[in-house]
Design a protein around this nucleic acid. Sequence first.
DNA 1: CCCCATCGATTACGCCTGTAATACAACTAC
DNA 2: GTAGTTGTATTACAGGCGTAATCGATGGGG
Lengths: 130, 130
Amino acid sequence: MGQLMIEISNAELSVMQVLWQRQPLSANEVVAALGNAKDWHEKTVKTLLNRLVSKGALGFDKDGRAYSYYPLIAQHDYQLEQSRSFVERLFAGRVAPLVAGFASQNKLNADDVQQLKQLIADWEQEQNND
Amino acid sequence: MGQLMIEISNAELSVMQVLWQRQPLSANEVVAALGNAKDWHEKTVKTLLNRLVSKGALGFDKDGRAYSYYPLIAQHDYQLEQSRSFVERLFAGRVAPLVAGFASQNKLNADDVQQLKQLIADWEQEQNND
DNA sequence: CCCCATCGATTACGCCTGTAATACAACTAC
DNA sequence: GTAGTTGTATTACAGGCGTAATCGATGGGG
């Protein structure tokens, strides 16, 4: 699982985010959802939808003349795989130094720290269970 | 500082890693250092060195006929900026969910956890100091 | 019925990337 | 000093990406 992950470009990723959040959507709904954040021509968004379908990242049902698009890959799987490869490339696979960077730039807030503590507690629990 | 970071491609990054580790190096030394990990033709590596110089990521001194290359951007700065933008794109800027992914895949080891605990301790210390 | 608006499909196009090969300059060994 | 050899610089070329415009089908309004 995971090694043969589809490559999604930056622009395409923005389209995926929309569909991960709400699905299925027509092309125009995707355009509308992006209109807020991106200044893309409608044609551009449709090109991206097309490429994502070609890549197997999106599927669609025909809904009359228009299509209704939905993700074929799960956001969570994509995040996992990308994180793994990013941390591998930049930090030799170790995630702690990445977090250290955030900490050094004051990019950690109380919620983050709370979550991290919980993760650590769970991890230690796990160790003891073996 | 950091928004105008030079874009470094994947292949180019491998070259940077070599020079971040040991610097300065001649083109042939870089080729040799990569020979281990990558199956690249010597010409390919020299193209990458050239592109990195064009991009302003590397500088060089002339050492007779050959050049002696060295990084112009610090590994740490690059890591920081890339981490920031990666976490922004995939996790809406929150680093904890990324760590959670590692945890869920058993990609955390005792060292990581130890470092994370230390980061948290430092963070809490910092909070109290205000 | 016919034309227009609107879909998705196809084509465009310049830049970046991966992956070299070729060209040109200069040293080195005769 | 002439021919390799070895450096860097220039050129190559296909595929991906950002960013659309054009094409061809189709459905809706009159």
